[in-house]
Amino acid sequence: MKIALVPGVPALLPSYSSIEDPVADLRKACLAAVTDLGPRVRVVTGQDPGLRVARHLVAEAGAEESADEPTGILVVGNGSAKRTSKAPGDFDERAEVFDDDLRRALLEPLPTALSAIDARLAEEMWADVEGIRTLGELLTPADTAEVAYDAAPYGVQYWVISWR
């Protein structure tokens, strides 16, 4: 089963499109990762706007959202939104460490660590980890991660990662 992680960035939605796409690289990486999930995609996400972003990406990829016999699983989530002084949540010195730990857990991967993400700290870091926590049940240490995007261009840590 292919699994992919994308961030629930509202700027990816058509209703928020600009003349000059502020998330062009991220969009490209997300679409490639979702396309790779095949025709039937199960979506794992917290609340809006993550769900809307996931549905948009699935539709753009020409796939359909389906929990029955999915060909792939799309998980929506991101790291801290407190990475810089211009970040939505302002700068928090704990944010980078939080994201480093999360990155290690995603890439190794470390299912136990993902399931045990500190919910309170994640909330303080303005991180969207509800979907990511589910990865703890979906991934095994034998899976290998392929990173298509890893940056915090607007002070929010985004990853696009595919596992197989």
């Binding site: 700027a11 003349i19 000059e20 502020p22």
Partner: peptide, 12 residues
């Protein structure tokens, strides 16, 4: 009738 040139505020 025209999108913003580049909108990311609140949408990142």
């Amino acid at each position: 009738r025209r999108p913003p040139q580049r909108a990311i505020r609140g949408l990142a």
